[in-house]
Design a protein around this nucleic acid. Structure first.
Lengths: 338, 338
DNA sequence: CGCTGGCACTCGGACGGACAGAGTGCCAGG
DNA sequence: CCTGGCACTCTGTCCGTCCGAGTGCCAGCG
């Protein structure tokens, strides 16, 4: 077990390194933090911390920088979450309150997060699978062509074109619309398949094919995982990443373009509470020199989607975590109101 | 006027510089292109081209690189558009054919363009203002709450929540829906305001307020320019930009995040045919070291939106223009089919 | 036993001069 | 008008030196 002072030394190293981006030496440490001991003592502590794998030196006779393991300890034990100041809270609320629809909420959230943290922000659209159905609408566009519109409690709208095997009258359509809504409105998406299972049986033989087609399209829409959408922003902040650009930045940009990767990343994060993945803790290799801070948000008590930021492992964890948590909270409120 | 050979020299300089990214000297030119003259002659031509402002040297005694003006001449007079090869055409078609809805078409187009050109791709969603209305749907979500869904001929769907000043019955809603659609279905967006002007007059006094509210929301949706959406991709290609990263790349990333800037950029481009904006020809300062190649695309003869790529001024213009044109053509076909 | 000051050592980054190579401009001659 | 030749200029690179920051270790002190 590490002594109290050694933990303080680690904390000081992380803080200084995050601030200066340069390896920090024993002398600078004692000058900037009054640890009450001499550089020589700090050197001994540093050697111990290095043995344990919390810090490393880029070259012999250079200062130390934290390792992923060091950041992990810092986040877990040495630092809290820095709460937003009152003006910041007001700014967040004002900014989000102006949103006119779901797209706008998400867009504003991305901008806000990117600005607050000065990092890359990622916001997932409220997930279909955890939402409930508000309404299902069927529109006849042509005799054998129906548009299916699905509206969720979070305001998200999905639409699909359905080519029917046989012409489908307005009356039948109205009938289907009514029956469908009476069964699924207000229900969770996961329950829908069970609820509509026997629906075709109530219809005339000639319409059953069409009903089945419509239903299967509906179910597809519900499960289709690749319909999970997300929005990213603040990529310009990547330029503040480090000195060796092309190599570091490229895989990150690539990862950000692969929505699948990002969704997986957010998906792997814990369901409740804030998750911080540091450097190599990220399964995706291109993000090995980044940290991801994410948290669920939702309109009620339950999380319907996640949001977070991607930044260099050398980031201000307390501040970032504070911003992410605060934004998630306010977005939840906005969604609950609408 | 420049002699034929001097134009050839300029063409050769552009081609070599695009290929190597390094200033090109007189000797290298004569070796790689058989111009039939000696380096000394080429040097004289280069001096003339430099006097005219088509090329420049980064330092005394370095090779020459083309200026924006040089690229302009190259694009206008010296190079054509390189057509896609047959396999490339097939690949484009195959890739786009798999799309399931409008979002998917746009997403695939972005990926495709980014891959083909190895640059940043920008695709604008089919514009509302130039489209026609396919259907307007009204859904009652609560006694005084209506959802307005607008479906366009290009498959785009917009929805808006409307808070009514007074409760609005199902019968009235159905009435409004029917009257509204009979007037606007199949019409161009720009005609809609005129067509619905006197609509509230046909309703009971107590419903008129609600009808007016719904209509004004509809009109808002139609004109709201900031609803012009676009999708970008291939930002990872920015890492191939140049050597002096942070400075070059940052303003570009910032511009790409400002959808307003991009929309303006595409908007300023000519309505018909392909537009190439080189370096300082771009009004937006952050893009002064980039070129933008854009073209309109549409489902019929008329363009409903634009797409293009953003890359370094040092780009393969013929190839890029070929790819952009080909993709626009196929996207138009896909839209016409659906 | 832990902290401290001192000391020798190592290494990276900055500085500066020398050098090679590429490219130019100019000029005289064909 | 083209060409070969020549002197010049500039950049990038290599190499040796030097300086400073930082370390590890050790002996001494409380």
């Amino acid at each position: 077990m590490l002594s109290e002072r050694r933990l303080q030394v680690l904390r000081a190293i992380v803080q200084d390194y995050v601030g200066t981006e340069e390896p920090v030496g024993s002398k600078a440490l004692t000058e900037r933090h009054n640890l009450g001991v001499s550089p020589a003592t700090v050197r001994n502590d540093m050697a111990a911390l290095e043995d344990e794998g919390f810090i490393a030196q880029p070259h012999t006779s250079a200062g130390r920088i934290p390792t992923d393991k060091g950041y992990r300890l810092f986040v877990d034990k040495l630092a809290g979450v820095k709460p937003m100041t009152a003006p910041e809270r007001r700014a967040i609320q004002n900014f989000l309150d102006g949103a006119v629809d779901l797209d706008d909420v998400v867009a504003r959230t991305v901008r806000l997060l990117a600005q607050l943290t000065r990092q890359v922000a990622v916001v997932q659209y409220p997930s279909l699978t955890r939402s409930t159905v508000r309404h299902v609408e069927l529109l006849s566009l042509a005799p054998a062509r129906v548009m299916l519109v699905l509206i969720t409690d979070t305001g998200r709208v999905e639409q699909r074109m359905v080519d029917c095997p046989a012409p489908f009258g307005e009356a039948s359509l109205a009938d289907l619309r009514a029956r469908l809504n009476s069964r699924v409105a207000g229900r969770r998406f996961t329950d829908v398949p069970r609820l509509v299972e026997d629906l075709p049986e109530g219809f005339d033989v000639e319409d059953r094919g069409t009903v089945a087609t419509v239903l299967s399209t509906l179910l597809e829409t519900l499960v289709e995982e690749n319909e999970e959408r997300l929005m990213i922003g603040g990529t310009a902040n990547l330029t503040r990443f480090g000195h060796d650009f092309p190599l570091t930045i490229r895989p990150v940009l690539e990862a950000l373009e692969e929505q699948v990767v990002l969704l997986k990343l957010l998906g792997e994060a814990g369901d409740s509470g804030m998750t911080v993945r540091i450097g190599h803790e990220n399964a995706y290799e291109g993000l090995n020199s980044t940290s991801v801070v994410s948290v669920g948000y939702g309109s009620g008590g339950e999380a319907v989607a996640k949001l977070g930021v991607v930044g260099p492992t050398r980031m201000d964890y307390p501040g970032t975590m504070g911003a992410v948590r605060a934004v998630a909270r306010y977005v939840g409120q906005i969604l609950a109101e609408s």
